[in-house]
Design a binder for these strands. Structure first.
Length: 589
RNA sequence: GCCCCCAUAGUUCAACGGAUAGAAUAGGAACCUUCUAAGUUCUAGAUGUAGGUUCGACUCCUACUGGGGGCACCA
């Protein structure tokens, strides 16, 4: 595995400290993991560390002296990647990457294209569960985050060399189907022959199912016994009742058809769509195992999982009517997944409101001895909410994702039609660009915000096509493409021809090589927003160069070649970033 | 009652214990007879409160306030 420059610097610093430790200057117990390397503000080099400040304090010496010693130690190792190291009060070390290294990276980007920064296969597998839409409910705005963030995480890990297993854990089982079946039966199917029933069910759309589900909850407010009818119908379904099963099959079929259309629009493809129902016949085994290990217990007629010392509230395996719960199904899913894929890491991209449930089945898996705590990650994203509160499916307060996507596309189309640049495009091409831009705007808006925060749903913000947005990045790519197609001389870059770099050129060049480091960081922290930040900053810096310096009409020939190389590399890195984020970029816009 | 998450310009978001807290948007002022104005430049504006840890705190700890979520037969 090729180490990033940041990793190399980290190594250099470690070596220097080890040496100081052997000389007794730095205490032997100084934790080398404490070495932190930052990206400083412009003008302070490409990397910086406050390491000397830490050590200085620790051993009661002036940090400036320590910085001086560290600087000398590192210089002794003659790292060609750095042209100079500066010391800044009160003891920071600033590292300036050499032009030679930067130009080398530039050539590498142009040569490796979309493989620049790609990690070698590392023999580790990561399972990412994301999207997890609910059958018989519309694909709402609530599932957008899981779908998009999950996909980005999946892409990041794959790019870094992990074997990735993406799972769409479809919500196709549970009492909600009992409720739906009850309501459907009472309102639409009562008295119908099974042939007629199939016909009626076949005509229902997802919107109809949603309406019926909402209707159930409205009626149940005045009739509490209806909740029991729902449970009874779910039991019928689990026991294999014909009518219940027929309704369920119709729901699944209709739902998947609609979901696949939306996944297509979003450009999301998930390896495996495995519904909760799939694990039904695997639950008994899990329960037996829990019983043997003394972790299962009866309580008030239900079968529960009890945590030692009550570190977590008990979770329910089976309800008192012996139907399964999502806890038992999620647990059975983990067991199955371990058997099937042996993942080293499990990443669950599920809303934060599920945090307790997720902790329960994670810890249960540990206590059952299936996996270690460190193998589980819950990316608990904040919810989309209105200014008033949360969207509730039961009350029918959902914003359908498709509606949002379509609106975004319409807005993008308006912008295209109003622009000089695109007036002679064909309608079909306009449509394709609108889709990429509109969908890109929505995805970027979501991905650029840290997952832990709630997002207040705002049409204008969500569909923002200007400023810090997906289309801004797409626009810069389109600009670059335009320049490149106009450039006649497309021969490769020869670094020896670069005489003197302008600050704008150095700024862009100083961004490009960081891409692999940012990708690694974003994966490690499960934060695609870091990649968004990076891409946006690069785009801004390129725009500055574009504004300040002529490219095609550059004064000197070598300047033109160099700037075109930067243009090509910028477009490449931006495209690579967007690809990882799951955003497409049009050639022109 | 208990547990979890969040709090940064008017608004919506960034910031890995580091140096002058970045953007976008809304407001004010500019820039298209040169490469895509979906762009660029200038301007004004923010870390909820009170303590603590630290050479250094938006970041860590404690309390409080405010918002959101959760706490066994929904998922």
């Amino acid at each position: 595995m090729v180490a990033t420059l940041k990793e190399q610097l980290n190594f250099l610093l470690k070596e220097a400290i080890r040496l100081l430790q052997s000389e007794g200057i730095v205490p032997a117990d100084f934790d080398l993991a404490k070495i932190k390397i930052d990206y400083p503000d412009y003008g302070r080099g490409d990397y910086a560390t406050g390491l000397a400040l830490q050590i200085g304090k620790l051993i009661g010496k002036n940090p400036m002296e320590i910085a001086e010693i560290l600087k000398k130690e590192i210089e002794k190792q003659h790292p060609i990647e750095f042209e100079r190291i500066e010391i800044a009060a009160p003891g920071f070390l600033n590292f300036y990457v050499s032009e030679k290294f930067l130009l080398g990276e530039l050539e590498k980007i142009l040569k490796e294209e979309n493989n620049y920064g790609r990690g070698k296969k590392n023999n580790k597998a990561v399972l990412v569960e994301y999207s997890a839409v609910n059958i018989a409910k519309p694909f709402g705005i609530g599932h957008l985050r899981s779908t998009i963030i999950g996909q980005a995480i999946y892409n990041l890990y794959g790019f870094l060399g992990w074997k990735t297993i993406g799972i769409n854990h479809l919500g196709d089982w549970g009492t909600q189907f009992g409720k739906l079946s009850y309501q459907l039966f009472e309102k639409k199917l009562k008295g119908a022959s099974s042939k007629e029933a199939v016909k009626i069910l076949g005509k229902l759309t997802l919107a109809d199912f949603e309406k019926i589900y909402v209707e159930f909850h409205q009626e149940a407010e005045g009739k509490p016994e209806m909740a029991d009818y729902g449970r009874q119908w779910f039991k019928k379904l689990e026991d294999g009742d014909k009518t219940a099963k027929m309704i369920w099959i119709a729901c699944v079929k209709t739902s998947l058809k609609e979901f696949n259309r939306i996944y297509g629009l979003l450009g999301v493809k998930i390896d495996h769509a495995i519904g909760e129902s799939f694990y039904l016949d695997k639950i008994a085994e899990v329960i037996n195992e829990a019983k043997e290990k003394g972790l299962a217990k009866e309580s008030q007629g239900a079968l529960i999982f009890e945590y030692p010392n009550e570190v977590l509230p008990p979770a329910m395996f089976l309800k008192s009517n012996e139907t399964s719960t999502y806890f038992s199904r999620d647990l059975a899913a983990i067991k199955y997944r371990i058997k099937q894929w042996h993942p080293d890491l499990f990443i669950y991209e599920i809303g934060s409101e599920q945090a307790l449930h997720v902790r329960q089945f994670f810890l249960a898996s540990e206590l059952l001895g299936w996996a270690q705590k460190s193998q589980f990650v819950h990316i608990g994203h904040g919810l989309y909410r209105t200014a008033e509160g949360k969207f509730s499916t039961r009350k029918g307060q959902t914003i359908h994702l498709e509606e949002v996507l379509n609106e975004a596309i319409v807005r993008a189309e308006k912008l295209i039609s109003g622009s000089e640049q695109n007036k002679n495009l064909k309608d079909k091409e306009k449509q394709q660009i609108s889709e990429m831009v509109g969908i890109g705007a929505i995805k970027y808006n979501d991905l650029s915000q840290h997952y832990s925060k709630e997002i207040i749903f705002d049409w204008d913000k969500m569909l923002n096509l200007k400023g810090n947005s997906g289309p801004y990045l797409q626009y810069v790519i389109a600009r670059c493409q335009s320049l490149l197609s106009k450039a006649k001389n497309r021969r490769g870059l020869d670094p020896r021809e670069v005489v003197e770099m302008a600050v704008e050129e150095r700024a862009v060049l100083g961004m490009l090589f960081k891409f692999p480091e940012i990708v690694a960081e974003a994966a490690k922290l499960f934060s695609p927003n870091l990649l968004c930040n990076f891409a946006y900053e690069l785009a801004q810096k390129y725009n500055l160069l574009y504004e300040k310096l002529p490219i095609l009409n550059a004064e000197k020939k070598e300047q033109k070649i160099f700037r075109l190389a930067l243009t090509k590399a910028t477009a490449q890195i931006l495209k690579n970033s967007l690809t990882l984020l799951g955003i497409k970029a049009p050639e022109r816009m």
